[in-house]
């Protein structure tokens, strides 16, 4: 049974501006209303937007710009609020995996870009998440050059620790955690990387400097503070646990008390 939907979509032609001092100027935009008939419940949410865009192009209207790429929930590119929830009503998935069978005939759906000062809107539903890249650049790595000649099995790692590190490493960098947080905090994103590398022996040598540098970069990008409401973890498509934030806090205090940045 095909459905009829009313879509309310954020349209913004001019980008938000953020200067070096962190001053933020919104580009301005507004919600537009579109009617869409013939939506199949088997369509993914983004395929539904494809159908809308084809219709708009045929009517000589500008299609809605949105980020998307792999469409299988792993690249982290798709990023939108659906009825106020990052990645929509379903748990544990990204927008591209959300299917229209989660909606009913006659529904009105509100679609907006991530809202956070650190993620300025570029156009319509597209935002600039390069702040995440800069946080990783600040220290989200193990400093080894290509060509280490240590056999992989010379670094044994217990299965429990390896699995825990893996849970953190599944972060796709989509930004839903920031979008879900009332303070637009990036704690879960940063914690996932800090926690992964703090758990693993490979990450130990740079452990203290890493957490200090990544947290400093996070603050500089204008993300808000964490008040442990847990909205980030609830909305995280990969279900990354708050326990990683706890571990990062522990790492951070430890690093500050016994800093090796001498």
């Amino acid at each position: 049974m095909n459905m009829k939907l009313t879509l309310k979509i954020w349209r913004q032609s001019k980008p938000d501006k953020k200067d070096a001092k962190g001053n933020f100027t919104p580009g301005g935009g507004k919600m537009e209303t579109y009617a869409l008939n013939e939506v199949s419940p088997d369509m993914s949410f983004l395929e539904m937007l494809d159908v809308l865009n084809e219709k708009l192009v045929k009517e000589d209207k500008e299609p809605v710009a949105f980020d998307h790429d792999c469409r299988e929930g792993i690249c982290g590119m798709c990023s939108m609020y659906i009825n106020g929830q990052p990645h929509g009503p379903d748990r544990g998935i990204t927008t591209c995996q959300l299917h229209m069978r989660s909606f009913k005939d006659g529904d009105t759906i509100y679609i907006e870009p991530w809202r956070a000062k650190a993620f300025p809107v570029i156009k319509d539903l597209m935002v600039d998440r390069s702040a995440f890249d800069r946080i990783i650049q600040a220290g989200g790595y193990v400093s080894v050059n290509t060509g280490v000649n240590v056999d992989a099995n010379e670094i044994p790692i217990g299965k429990g620790i390896a699995d825990k590190a893996f849970d953190a490493a599944t972060c796709i960098g989509c930004g839903a955690c920031v979008a879900a947080c009332k303070n637009a905090s990036a704690m879960l994103f940063v914690a996932a990387k800090v926690s992964q590398l703090a758990l693993l022996p490979q990450g130990k040598p740079e452990r203290k400097a890493r957490v200090e540098k990544m947290v400093a970069q996070m603050d500089e990008e204008g993300f808000g503070a964490c008040t442990n409401t847990g909205a980030c973890s609830a909305e995280c498509p990969k279900g990354i646990s708050l326990e990683h934030i706890a571990r990062m806090n522990r790492e951070y205090f430890g690093a500050k008390l016994t800093s090796e940045r001498v």
Partner: peptide, 22 residues
Amino acid sequence: VNIIDQCVAQGVPFAREYGGLL
């Protein structure tokens, strides 16, 4: 064989056995 060594050194969390080996 070098690729696996390199990736493990970077902290790539490959699946492991209970004994800690890959």
